[in-house]
Amino acid sequence: MKHALIIRHVPVEGVAGFRAPIEDAGFNVDRIDVTDPAFPSVDFLAPDLVVMMGGPMGVYESEAHPWIACQIARLSERMAADRPTLGVCLGAQMMAAGLGARVYPGGRQEVGFAPVALNPVGAGSPLRHLEDVPVLHWHGDTFDLPDGTELLASTGIYAQQAFRRGPNLLALQFHAEMGEDPRFDSWLDKWPDAIAAAGQSAAQMRADHDEHGPVAVAAGRRMIVDWLAGLRT
């Protein structure tokens, strides 16, 4: 059986709605937290699939989080070998950094449910399943588009919302995995400042989650099914 490794940066940001399509594609799913004493010794080249989830820290905060530099170095080796890799939010920023792009505070909080604008790209973007679907955004950092990658989606707030390099590397700034996971309530409790800075309220976020969440997750799963089917290993 193929092996997928989920890298979790904080406990409340897991693989959520993406787990089912990954398992359905024949992957045995393991998870490791960056705080696990075993994390520094993880071989990033070994898994058939690596999925890196989100977190509130910035890629540039390696002094406060020493594991960041270690993770990016090993991730760079994995991407140089073109091993299948998916990054979500912080995970996408890690991928950008590992490909040599600048990651930095964007100056605005993008928090809430909204669709992404799909960019005209080459054949078969898996993001086509998200057309006109409000998905969850929750970030204030952004990145430059790495050399050799293809921009897949943008919003009016941040241009870099998703990119790919060939069939094996996919980076998603937004959270199409979230919409049915009860950990969403923990996000509302843990990061009220980000909600307020984006001009949102917890009550409105919950209402939008109830309205848009199941549709967003269903579309996100179709996207992941599509992407996994096109992997070259």
Score class of each variant (00 low, 15 high):
residue 116 V to D: 13
residue 71 Q to Y: 02
residue 129 H to L: 11
residue 90 L to N: 03
residue 94 M to D: 09
residue 69 A to P: 03
residue 111 V to A: 02
residue 80 A to P: 03
residue 100 G to P: 06
residue 82 D to V: 13
residue 154 S to Y: 09
residue 70 C to H: 09
residue 83 R to T: 00
residue 64 A to W: 04
residue 87 G to S: 06
residue 116 V to K: 05
residue 112 G to N: 11
residue 85 T to V: 01
residue 117 A to E: 14
residue 89 C to P: 06
residue 85 T to Y: 00
residue 73 A to S: 13
residue 131 E to L: 14
residue 90 L to S: 10
residue 107 G to V: 06
residue 83 R to I: 01
residue 130 L to Y: 01
residue 83 R to Y: 00
residue 121 V to P: 06
residue 140 G to H: 07
residue 123 A to S: 13
residue 149 T to I: 10
residue 75 L to F: 02
residue 81 A to E: 08
residue 141 D to W: 05
residue 104 Y to M: 11
residue 119 N to G: 04
residue 143 F to Y: 08
residue 85 T to S: 08
residue 134 P to H: 07
residue 135 V to S: 10
residue 100 G to W: 05
residue 67 W to E: 15
residue 140 G to R: 12
residue 143 F to E: 03
residue 91 G to N: 01
residue 119 N to S: 13
residue 110 E to T: 09
residue 107 G to D: 13
residue 67 W to Y: 15
residue 111 V to Y: 11
residue 93 Q to A: 11
residue 103 V to E: 05
residue 81 A to K: 05
residue 132 D to S: 11
residue 110 E to N: 13
residue 108 R to M: 11
residue 108 R to G: 05
residue 154 S to C: 12
residue 76 S to W: 01
residue 91 G to I: 04
residue 102 R to E: 13
residue 63 E to I: 15
residue 64 A to S: 15
residue 119 N to T: 12
residue 117 A to Q: 08
residue 85 T to N: 05
residue 146 P to N: 11
residue 79 M to K: 01
residue 78 R to L: 06
residue 80 A to T: 07
residue 76 S to A: 15
residue 91 G to A: 02
residue 122 G to M: 08
residue 106 G to M: 00
residue 120 P to M: 13
residue 136 L to C: 04
residue 86 L to S: 03
residue 149 T to W: 07
residue 131 E to C: 08
residue 70 C to E: 11
residue 94 M to P: 01
residue 82 D to Y: 09
residue 82 D to H: 10
residue 151 L to E: 04
residue 141 D to L: 06
residue 114 A to P: 11
residue 74 R to S: 15
residue 137 H to M: 10
residue 142 T to A: 01
residue 94 M to K: 02
residue 134 P to T: 00
residue 81 A to P: 01
residue 121 V to H: 08
residue 77 E to L: 07
residue 84 P to E: 02
residue 101 A to M: 01
residue 151 L to R: 13
residue 131 E to F: 10
